[in-house]
Design a protein around this nucleic acid. Structure first.
Lengths: 122, 122
DNA sequence: CCTTGATATCGACACTCATCGATATCGACT
DNA sequence: AGTCGATATCGATGAGTGTCGATATCAAGG
């Protein structure tokens, strides 16, 4: 299985990519087809300019979190499109979201980005 | 411009992604739409299981290089498909190729992978 | 030269995906 | 209850892409 369920208080549940035991550094150990698919899914989440901008906006925001309402205008896409991309980022485990009243707040998951860095290491 | 031409003796020329001045770490500085597109192109190259396997096979090969002829069977795809994926990896600047007689040898470009690692760093 | 084998390109097809308008859901406030 | 505003979902559409058979290119050897 390459997916697991993350559940914690206040944080909305979602099936997210589990990169913990998937995959040694690309340049070190061999990579079978299944692990390659899991890893490819993670990089797919980064393979879109809008998602990279969203990730950047969230990561560089004060307090490390951003209201979804502040993400639509900066990327210049419609609200449904932004919502879609945020879902992709969540499913990849790259961001977390938490609903507070009317608003949903997003924060990056540093560990997941670190996992991808590790895969690219020597 | 996000592309530049790499030319060196014995190594086949190709327009490759230039990540040198593109982009500070995602979690540090802001990312405009143009740089986001360049960066997304780089991650797109990693966003396919076959390409990840190819990269892995090339990187872990003896001497750090692999004949294209030894890449078709391990990934279980047709020769044209493998050739296509190798081209994508080359255009992303992730691998280099060199023709020696009948065969073409591929090697990873560590600096390019390091650039992507840097972008993901804190 | 002609054949053989390795690699790249072409053309076509199926499938995925980014995008957005319309709509649904849900919380807050009156 | 009813309205308003924020976010998510749905459905459709157009662009992009992975795949492979057929074909082209090119080097080596006879």
């Amino acid at each position: 299985m390459s997916k697991s369920v993350t559940a914690s208080v206040g944080v909305r549940e979602l099936e997210v990519l589990d990169l913990a035991d998937c995959c040694a550094p690309l340049r070190r150990e061999s990579l079978d087809a299944e692990h390659a698919s899991t890893l490819a899914s993670a990089f797919k989440a980064l393979a879109d300019p809008v998602r990279l901008q969203l990730l950047n906006l969230i990561a560089t925001a004060d307090g490390g979190e951003t209201c979804a309402c502040d993400l639509v205008e900066p990327v210049g896409k419609s609200q449904p499109t932004v919502s879609h991309h945020l879902k992709v980022l969540r499913e990849a485990g790259l961001v977390q979201s938490e609903k507070r009243g009317t608003w949903v707040w997003y924060a990056v998951v540093p560990e997941q980005l670190d996992e991808l860095r590790r895969v690219l290491s020597r």
